[in-house]
């Protein structure tokens, strides 16, 4: 079941558009947030009913966009380290390796306590402050080992 908050957000999203289908991205985002970072089939089926779409259409939309984590639960903190050109030039590989060592997981994995998921991404639009990463909604820029340590320590 979608949370009441998610349903309210979907209601609000519907007011922006002349058709219901347009609200699908906002609806999926709300559902993912409510579930703590991923989507399940039940969420998409429920969204399909609300938006008068076929379930397969909702799934097709969700599967297209990389930020929807379908059936892939993520940790409390989803760490996404940028590895494209500007970040790579400024040492992204080093940051990723350091992160893997510190968290004792490989890229793509979640720690045993479900606290951290480590991913790499291809450019987050923060190239002048490379290397950088995003943890949940927040950007962390001009990274080095010490800064990474400090940021991780600050996450409860």
């Amino acid at each position: 079941m979608l949370s009441e908050e998610a349903k309210k957000e979907i209601e609000k999203a519907l007011r922006k558009y002349p058709n219901k289908r347009s609200a699908v991205m906002d609806a999926l985002r709300s559902a993912q947030k409510a579930r703590g970072g991923h989507l399940e089939k039940a969420d998409m089926d429920e969204i399909a009913v609300i938006l008068e779409m076929q379930a397969v259409e909702v799934n097709a939309a969700a599967a297209f966009y990389t930020m929807y984590n379908i059936d892939k639960p993520v940790g409390k903190y989803h760490i996404q380290v940028c590895r494209n050109i500007s970040c790579s030039l400024m040492g992204a590989e080093h940051i990723i390796k350091h992160m893997e060592r510190t968290l004792n997981i490989k890229t793509g994995e979640t720690t045993g306590d479900k606290k951290f998921t480590l991913s790499t991404v291809e450019c987050l639009g923060s190239c002048g402050t490379a290397p950088m990463m995003q943890i949940n909604d927040d950007f962390h820029e001009n990274l080095d080992e010490a800064k990474v340590e400090e940021i991780l320590k600050g996450l409860e």
């Binding site: 922006k16 058709n19 289908r21 699908v24 991205m25 906002d26 779409m53 939309a61 929807y68």
Partner: peptide, 27 residues
């Protein structure tokens, strides 16, 4: 004026893909 938030697809910067995305389709 309304905000439509993408969700991870560079192709949405292509103008007609952007329109598809606002319409709730694969971009």
């Amino acid at each position: 004026i309304y905000i439509h938030r993408g969700y991870g697809a560079y192709i949405c910067g292509e103008e007609t893909a952007l329109l598809e995305s606002i319409e709730g389709l694969r971009a």
